[in-house]
Design a protein around this nucleic acid. Sequence first.
DNA 1: CAGTATCCGGTGCGATACTG
DNA 2: CAGTATCGCACCGGATACTG
Lengths: 156, 156
Amino acid sequence: MSDTDPIRTSPVSMENCGAALAMTVVPDRWTWLILRELFYGVARFADIQDDIGIPKSVLSGRLATMVDTGLIQKEAYRDGTARTRHGYVLTQKGRDLVPVIVALMQWGDKHLKDGTATLDLTDRRTGTPVKAGLVLEGGILPARRLAFAPAAHGDN
Amino acid sequence: MSDTDPIRTSPVSMENCGAALAMTVVPDRWTWLILRELFYGVARFADIQDDIGIPKSVLSGRLATMVDTGLIQKEAYRDGTARTRHGYVLTQKGRDLVPVIVALMQWGDKHLKDGTATLDLTDRRTGTPVKAGLVLEGGILPARRLAFAPAAHGDN
DNA sequence: CAGTATCCGGTGCGATACTG
DNA sequence: CAGTATCGCACCGGATACTG
């Protein structure tokens, strides 16, 4: 039993909260799963469909809005044949979500599985293992040490 | 125009992917917004409702399943009055999602606003600014340097 | 292969009203 | 204050069929 009054209202309004805004751009499960596919480098419509089991019509719609919101873009490429095909790739804006995806993945590995990862994430340069987390120089900051205060300039 | 064949299938199946599993536990916008409130320390039913504008019945349902999935728990506390009230707090499992929330928030601040944060996140011990990201010792690893390979032990 | 079109059934959202 | 109950309607998911 705690004996202090809890906070009664969020320090940041919905319109000014990056997290809340982010939810409008990545609002549902399918969108996350598609991002995960593109993160893995799976680019083609039918391949994404097969991997995550999404109906074509839904995939079609999601891809369109993700292009609209600037998360992804269409890109042409050549496969073995003469025919030009095209797939989807993350934009920079989409790539900036990679830390979120990785954090989510590692959270799921820890709490929703036996704790073992199925994927080893490393620095492609040095091979050093990589983790997602809160960063200070020199290491990961535990969540409990995180403090927050309204920014000096912004209006909340 | 890229000229290499893209990856045709995800290196990790849906059942073994922590990210995909995580989406089953935090499947929608409301759940994320509730997590955000609890992250801020807003604990009471009506306060959460007011902040994020969720219908009571929906909030009721979400809180129940979040308790079920172990993200949050009910906690009694004393307010000014004699009456015992109760609110919701993150469990350890829920708190482990903080890096995801922070990463999301900073992504939203960067891409969905003018680029300025409304909240300054710092180490509560030292006051040093905090960021979410991919971590190697000594700093943040850019997403482009991230490599992945199936884990040695796991079945994918 | 990469979609669009159509349709139907269920979920679940959100409003309102009610209860301890 | 903290929910539960009820309910109509919209939207979404998924199946199927069709097109370039």
